[in-house]
Nucleic acid binder design. Sequence first.
DNA 1: CTAGAACCTCAACTATGGTTTAAGTCAAGC
DNA 2: GCTTGACTTAAACCATAGTTGAGGTTCTAG
Lengths: 153, 153
Amino acid sequence: MPNELTIGEVASRSGVAPSALRFYEEEGLIVSRRTTGNQRRYERAVLRRVALIQAGRAAGIPLERIRAALVTLPAHRTPTRRDWERLSRGWREDIDRRIATLEALRNRLTTCIGCGCLSIDACELLNPDDEAAEGGSGAHYLQRDSQRAHSPE
Amino acid sequence: MPNELTIGEVASRSGVAPSALRFYEEEGLIVSRRTTGNQRRYERAVLRRVALIQAGRAAGIPLERIRAALVTLPAHRTPTRRDWERLSRGWREDIDRRIATLEALRNRLTTCIGCGCLSIDACELLNPDDEAAEGGSGAHYLQRDSQRAHSPE
DNA sequence: CTAGAACCTCAACTATGGTTTAAGTCAAGC
DNA sequence: GCTTGACTTAAACCATAGTTGAGGTTCTAG
């Protein structure tokens, strides 16, 4: 059990491609020391950080926000509950907001499908502004959140 | 009340930039006829389609999927409940899956914050593979969905 | 000592979802 | 009839989140 890891080891253990790890390092999300031969060596703690990055990505949190959260964590020492609590609070709010947006949209879809309304023309999702336009834009109720995620598969 | 709309009218009524409307047309999500002077004129029905595009975008559904859904809708006639039902069923599943993923992550965050566990090292979110790596990748439980959305503000 | 796997850098490329810019055309009001 | 605003195209550009490829180096095993 080595206590320093090569990029390949981190990659296979975390499921993140070496190219992505290098990219995360460029972006300041993780760090590495270099061997005399200029190869990266990672502390085991980097696995935790990479796991957090993956969690954040899965939640649609932009890398920049993840980076901002990670810099508040100790780079070497195991994070304390306090560290972790601070970090996750912000993300929770984010996730809550995104869930709320999706649920609102889902409800609207359901209403539009299930409604016994005489005319589909009365549906607010399908008819943002069509008849009753009075300047401004339709579909205000759809808050676009700043989510982003990539399917690397 | 004109029954054909210029691109500027569609833009201001829908809240979508003219450049985006042209882009949607290129991508086959909407159509327009041209005046003798080569300017676009839109049927009012395009407003409904644009509203759907916005709804899909807000849900993180990729444009290509939205396009696929839209081609099943009548281009000119008002969609019937059947049309609409068919389209929205697929999206609902998508939204449900995305909500489930987010909720799973949120629960994990909450557990990790709230747990009275002796060591944060025991947390599965923070320790995907760290001690107990047996090949493969960590954080399997985080299904990355193919969401995408942009904040145009 | 040498083959081959794993690593290095840098630049270019991918995909999505558009915006911006340049150069020119059209439509409407005065 | 002319100015002004809205429209046209095409190509270039933006951000995010990486991947790919070329060309070269290092590490490890036999």
